Amino acid sequence: MSSRVAVVGAGIGGLAVAGALLRKGFQVDVYEQAAALRDVGAGMHLGCNGSRILRRWGFGAWLDRAGVRPVALEVRAWDDGRTLNRQVMGEDWVAEFGTPYHTIHRADLQRILVEHAAGARVRLNHRLTGFTDRGDGVRLSFASGRTATADVLVGADGMHSVVRGAVAGHERPVFSGTSAFRGMVPAGSVPDLPPETMFLWVGAGARLLCYPVSGGRFLTFVAVVPDPGSGTESWSSEGDPAELQALFERWHPHARALVGAVRETRRWGLYDRQPLESWGTGRVTLLGDAAHPMLPHHGQGANQALEDAVALAHFLHTDEPGAGLRRYEDLRRPHTARVQLGSRGSGSLRVRPGGGGELASLVEDTSWIQRYDVEGVLFGEVVAR
Rank of each mutant, 00 (worst) to 15 (best):
G301L: 01
P241K: 03
V262C: 09
P195T: 11
M159I: 15
V94N: 15
T132F: 11
R273I: 01
E358D: 14
R139V: 13
G376D: 06
S51Q: 03
A257I: 02
Y372F: 13
L287W: 02
V213K: 06
R82F: 04
Q27H: 15
G269K: 10
V167H: 08
R217Q: 10
V7E: 06
G67T: 05
A360N: 14
L193C: 01
Q274F: 11
H105R: 07
P241M: 00
N85K: 14
A255H: 02
A118M: 08
R350F: 13
P353K: 09
R326W: 11
L54P: 04
L316A: 05
G357I: 05
E307H: 09
S141C: 10
E243Y: 10
W279E: 06
H314S: 02
G239W: 01
V284K: 11
S237Y: 10
C48L: 01
L22Q: 15
A120L: 08
R164N: 06
D136K: 13
H252W: 04
S348L: 13
A20R: 11
V259T: 08
G380W: 07
R333Q: 13
G205T: 13
H292Y: 04
Y271E: 03
W57R: 11
D79K: 13
R263M: 08
R273G: 02
G25V: 07
G282E: 14
V224H: 12
L306T: 09
W368P: 02
P212C: 00
H298F: 14
D136L: 12
L200V: 01
R207T: 03
D157E: 07
H314D: 06
F379G: 08
H252P: 00
D373I: 01
H252I: 00
S234N: 14
R327T: 08
A10D: 07
V5L: 02
L258W: 04
E96L: 11
G355E: 12
G376F: 03
T336C: 10
G183V: 06
P353N: 03
R250H: 15
L113F: 04
F221S: 04
H292N: 02
G47M: 11
A255K: 00
D79H: 12
G301E: 11
V5E: 02
V122S: 10
G282W: 12
G47A: 13
V310T: 05
V138H: 04
V17M: 11
A36N: 14
T336S: 10
G342P: 06
H45P: 08
L124H: 07
S236C: 12
A61P: 12
D373V: 04
Q27M: 12
G11D: 04
E91L: 09
W368G: 00
L287T: 02
S237I: 09
L124E: 03
L208N: 00
L306K: 01
S144N: 05
M294I: 01
G135E: 13
A313Q: 08
V138Y: 02
W57P: 04
R76W: 00
G280D: 07
